[in-house]
Simulated assay, not measured.
Amino acid sequence: MLELLFLLLPIAAAYGWFYGRNSLRREELKGKAHVAKNLSSGLNFLLTDQEDKAIEQLLQLLDIEAATIDTYLALANLFRRRGDWDKAIRIHEKLHHLKLPKTQAQQIQLELANDYFSAGLYDRAEKLLTELVQAEQLREKTLKLLFTLFIATHEWHKAVSFSHDVDKTDSKSLRIAIANMRCLDQQKPLDAFSLRLLSQQYPQAIRPKFELAQMLLKQQLPEEAAVAFKAVLQQKPQWAAEILPGLAQCQLPSAEWYQLLSQLAHKNKNITATIFLADWLVQTGSPAAGEQLLLEKLQQKPNIRLFQRLLQLRQITEPEHRAALHSVEQLVNAYLETKILFSCRNCGFKTRQTYWLCPSCQQWETVEPLSGIDGR
């Protein structure tokens, strides 16, 4: 009898294990059915435009099923795109309080900061973003959103404090942004020495070089100003329309000035440089050569501004037709006064004045002089 009892023990243990396993499986299936029921109910609320009830129903599932985080993130982002920031915030705040893996928790924190920024809660957004800057995988995205926030509040001095974090990234746009915001920081105005250092630290940006050149010109240091102006031209020849008037005041040697204008006019096909070169030829006693240059460029590629300057030259060389030519010039001038001068290469924003920061897409140094038939 005792031997029989020992034989029955393994069978009893196996039965207990089997029954317990089935019990756990039943509980798991029951839980999943509850989740599915609540999820279905939440979706029905969404479909019937009862969004508040839908959010309450779906948020209840977070405590039961944290594996569906991506679904909630997608839903919150949908609300944010629609402008329902309060709903997005509620979802992201609920997710933010869950115990999740570090990477996932940081991503949710970034999304919540984005919600706060979109809703105008800048202080809350700044606090979350400042904490996230040290997260290597999200550093670039965090800094871009943080800088967008500082642009909205004009707190340039706060942006400057993140210079070292910008240097840890490979982002060209962030480097250009920090250079521009340092130029705007009134708490620490930049002198010529500081602008030189800033130009060397962030060579991608042209604003420090441009402001350095203007400052040196005002300080009556034309040779040093010319170096800064030429550095901008070398980097951005399309900016010749903005640079050449200042560079002309630096009184470069005649041969150097001619060589610079020739390169910009012929190699870079710059309109303003062509006009300056034609004027130089006229001033050095070769009006016919200046007129011929304009004619050749117009034949290669029509441009209204080259035609305008040709009309002005013809009034000098053909005084008998001055009245008629002047009338045509006035019509051309009226036409050009209506034309845009700058366009953002990033978003296409068009304007007649220059901006270091595009008013449309909020990108730095993307608004550039236009080319083409009306370009400069």
Rank of each mutant, 00 (worst) to 15 (best):
T48L: 11
V133A: 04
K53G: 02
S40I: 07
A76Y: 01
S23Q: 09
E111G: 00
L29T: 08
L110M: 13
L95I: 08
L62P: 01
E27R: 09
T71H: 11
A113K: 06
K30Y: 00
L46V: 06
L46G: 00
A105S: 15
D63T: 14
Q104V: 11
L61R: 03
L121S: 09
N114L: 10
R81I: 00
Y116G: 02
Q106F: 04
A105P: 05
A105L: 07
A88M: 04
Q109H: 10
I69R: 11
D63S: 15
R82M: 06
E56D: 15
Y122D: 10
D70M: 09
D115L: 02
D70S: 14
N77I: 08
A67E: 14
T103S: 03
N114C: 02
P101K: 06
S40A: 14
R82E: 13
D115A: 09
S41Y: 14
Q60M: 13
I55G: 00
A74G: 07
Q104K: 12
L110H: 05
N44L: 08
A74M: 09
S23L: 08
Q57N: 10
L132R: 01
L129F: 00
L100I: 06
T103G: 12
A119L: 12
L62E: 08
A36L: 12
K37I: 03
D52Q: 11
T48M: 08
A88D: 00
S40G: 14
L110G: 07
A88Q: 01
Q104P: 01
K127N: 07
L128I: 10
K87Y: 15
T68V: 14
R90F: 03
R25F: 04
Q109A: 15
L62H: 07
A88I: 05
L24A: 03
R124E: 05
I64A: 09
R26A: 12
H96W: 03
L29F: 02
R82W: 05
H97C: 00
V35W: 07
L59F: 07
K127L: 06
L128A: 07
L78N: 11
Q50I: 05
L100C: 04
E27D: 01
E126D: 10
N114K: 10
I89M: 03
A105M: 06
D123I: 12
G83F: 11
